[in-house]
Simulated scan of single mutants.
Amino acid sequence: MSAGFTAEDGTTLAYDDLGAADDGRPPVVLVHGHPFDRTMWQPQATALVAAGYRVIVADLRGYGDSGVVPGRTLFGVFAADIAALLDHLGIARAVVGGVSMGGQIAMEFHRSHPDRVAALVLADTSPVAETEDGKAFRNRLADRLLAEGMGGYADEVIDKMLAPYNVTGLPDVAAHVLGMMRGTDPEGAAAALRGRAERPDYRDSLAGAGVPVLVVVGADDVYIPVAEARALHGLIPGAGLVVVEGAGHLPGLERPEAFNDAVARFLAEVGKG
């Protein structure tokens, strides 16, 4: 079911609430990355609903069908939106997963609302706070997107979002990713970039995580190399790690069967726990 609700500040947030949980298993909330929208999770949502899970996918404020708030959107605001959505749906705890920036927002949600997290899925993401150079880069990019729009940026990064061989080998996936990037409102993207530049370091909160955690990474991700994913995995006692062959930064779209299998096996273990 596609729907929307209004956050405390009046921003409309769009979401899909799909399926129904069997046997009391916690719902699964999936958080998209930048500059995408909730449609990036369609392969995962379809597979998980078929397996008997309730799945919630939302457009972050500034993206997709959600309202756009210019300026700067801190990760704490995105996390508060997830909490408000769970309240709206009457959900106390959920498995929270995210890719790239969405993974960082999942980490922020875990840091700020630990009692609401049943497990974490962290795909192609980093827990480390932004460097000074990184802050400057993100703020420059925000300025550029506001000045030029999303098209040139989308064309520049498509072969980093996807492994280059998948840009040509998976033309429908490439078209979907380009469409999401080009369709994002520059004001929403810029606000998120400015907030992302100010994110805290999540290593301490993850090291003390008392919930199951799965780390996933594409074998050919240039943004988050496998070595960085292994470092994230090593921070978290008992965490799992899956390297998806034949994928770059978005393995859930590039190799959905392998990605879905990893998540399904992880959720089965969470259910046993």
Rank of each mutant, 00 (worst) to 15 (best):
H249I: 04
D81N: 02
A47F: 06
L214K: 03
K160W: 14
V77H: 06
G240A: 12
A209R: 00
G33M: 02
V29P: 15
A118Q: 10
Y223D: 14
T11P: 08
V215Y: 01
H110N: 02
V96D: 02
G169A: 14
G98A: 03
G218S: 08
A142M: 08
A142G: 10
I236R: 04
D201S: 00
D201Q: 00
A14P: 12
R54M: 07
L178M: 05
A106I: 01
S205F: 05
A106N: 02
G169C: 09
V55W: 14
V211K: 08
V68H: 09
A227N: 01
G238N: 13
E228A: 10
V28M: 11
D143I: 14
P237M: 05
G33L: 01
A84S: 14
V57L: 08
V242H: 04
G152Q: 07
R138F: 04
G195C: 04
V57C: 09
G103M: 10
H32R: 03
G152R: 06
V69K: 09
A47C: 06
G90R: 12
V99H: 04
M1P: 11
L253P: 00
A219D: 04
A192H: 13
P237W: 05
T6L: 11
D65Y: 03
G151I: 07
G10T: 02
F78L: 12
A189L: 06
L267G: 03
L162P: 08
P171G: 03
Q42V: 13
P171W: 02
T131P: 11
A209V: 00
F78G: 01
E130A: 01
G102E: 04
M40A: 06
L120M: 11
G103Y: 09
V242N: 00
R111H: 09
A45N: 05
A3S: 15
L253H: 01
F109P: 05
M180F: 02
G33R: 00
Q104M: 15
K160L: 13
A80M: 05
I82L: 15
G149T: 01
S100N: 10
Y223F: 15
E8T: 12
A174F: 06
A84G: 13
T73K: 11
D201G: 00
E254L: 06
P212A: 07
A207V: 10
M107Y: 04
L241W: 06
G149S: 01
G234N: 08
Y223G: 11
V55M: 14
I236Q: 05
A119R: 15
L120K: 08
V99Q: 10
A21Q: 14
G10N: 02
E156I: 12
F109A: 02
V243Y: 07
H176Q: 13
E187M: 11
T39K: 05
M101R: 02
V77N: 04
G98L: 04
E132N: 11
A209F: 01
M161D: 11
A118F: 07
